[in-house]
Simulated assay, not measured.
Amino acid sequence: MGRFLFKSLLMVIFLAVGVLIGMNRANQGMNDMRGYTDSSFQTPVHIQTTDEGSFDAAVLGNEISSFNMNEKKEKLEEVKSFNFFSEIGKLLADLISSIAQAIINFFAGLF
């Protein structure tokens, strides 16, 4: 199930990037057909490099902010969220593992 969700999410991201690239190419094609640039037609994806070496990006006029993974991890640790289904899954996995281990030990003791 997890692999399916991962593959599906990866495919959605890949297709969304393809749509953005297609929009950018269509904008360039419109400019090439007219033969001049019009300020009313803006590029859908705008990427600019800052002096510090980081990138500023805007998609359809909305700024995209990059985030630091360490800051995100610290923020998640502060929330200390409890996932009930994850804990139930861990308990069930431990229970099944201990039952299987007991059965294997029982049959190993017979021989």
Results as ranks from 00 to 15, higher is better:
residue 8 S to C: 14
residue 8 S to E: 15
residue 9 L to I: 07
residue 10 L to P: 00
residue 10 L to W: 02
residue 11 M to G: 05
residue 11 M to I: 09
residue 12 V to Q: 14
residue 12 V to L: 14
residue 14 F to H: 05
residue 14 F to K: 10
residue 16 A to T: 13
residue 16 A to C: 12
residue 16 A to G: 06
residue 18 G to S: 09
residue 18 G to H: 05
residue 18 G to W: 11
residue 18 G to T: 07
residue 18 G to K: 04
residue 18 G to M: 12
residue 19 V to A: 07
residue 20 L to M: 13
residue 21 I to Y: 08
residue 23 M to F: 08
residue 26 A to T: 07
residue 27 N to D: 05
residue 28 Q to W: 00
residue 28 Q to N: 07
residue 28 Q to S: 08
residue 28 Q to I: 03
residue 28 Q to C: 00
residue 29 G to M: 09
residue 29 G to F: 06
residue 30 M to C: 03
residue 32 D to P: 02
residue 33 M to H: 06
residue 35 G to K: 01
residue 35 G to T: 01
residue 36 Y to V: 08
residue 36 Y to R: 10
residue 36 Y to H: 09
residue 37 T to P: 02
residue 38 D to A: 02
residue 40 S to P: 01
residue 40 S to V: 08
residue 42 Q to N: 08
residue 42 Q to W: 01
residue 42 Q to S: 11
residue 42 Q to H: 10
residue 43 T to F: 10
residue 45 V to W: 01
residue 46 H to P: 03
residue 47 I to N: 12
residue 47 I to K: 05
residue 48 Q to T: 14
residue 48 Q to D: 13
residue 48 Q to K: 15
residue 48 Q to C: 01
residue 48 Q to H: 10
residue 49 T to H: 07
residue 49 T to V: 09
residue 49 T to F: 10
residue 49 T to Y: 04
residue 50 T to F: 00
residue 52 E to M: 13
residue 53 G to E: 04
residue 53 G to C: 01
residue 53 G to I: 05
residue 54 S to M: 09
residue 54 S to A: 09
residue 55 F to G: 02
residue 55 F to D: 02
residue 55 F to T: 05
residue 55 F to V: 15
residue 55 F to P: 03
residue 56 D to N: 14
residue 56 D to R: 10
residue 57 A to M: 14
residue 57 A to P: 00
residue 57 A to I: 13
residue 57 A to C: 07
residue 58 A to M: 05
residue 58 A to R: 03
residue 59 V to A: 03
residue 59 V to L: 04
residue 60 L to G: 04
residue 60 L to W: 03
residue 60 L to A: 04
residue 61 G to S: 01
residue 61 G to M: 03
residue 61 G to T: 00
residue 62 N to M: 11
residue 64 I to M: 12
residue 64 I to H: 08
residue 65 S to N: 07
residue 65 S to H: 02
residue 65 S to C: 02
residue 66 S to F: 14
residue 66 S to L: 11
residue 66 S to M: 06
residue 67 F to R: 15
residue 67 F to K: 13
residue 67 F to V: 15
residue 68 N to V: 06
residue 70 N to M: 09
residue 71 E to S: 09
residue 71 E to Y: 05
residue 73 K to S: 10
residue 73 K to G: 01
residue 73 K to V: 12
residue 73 K to I: 13
residue 75 K to Q: 15
residue 76 L to Y: 10
residue 77 E to L: 15
residue 77 E to S: 13
residue 78 E to N: 08
residue 78 E to H: 05
residue 79 V to G: 01
residue 79 V to K: 10
residue 79 V to H: 03
residue 79 V to P: 00
residue 79 V to A: 06
residue 79 V to S: 04
residue 80 K to D: 15
residue 80 K to Q: 13
residue 80 K to I: 02
residue 82 F to D: 13
residue 83 N to G: 12
residue 83 N to L: 11
residue 84 F to Y: 15
residue 85 F to N: 13
residue 85 F to G: 09
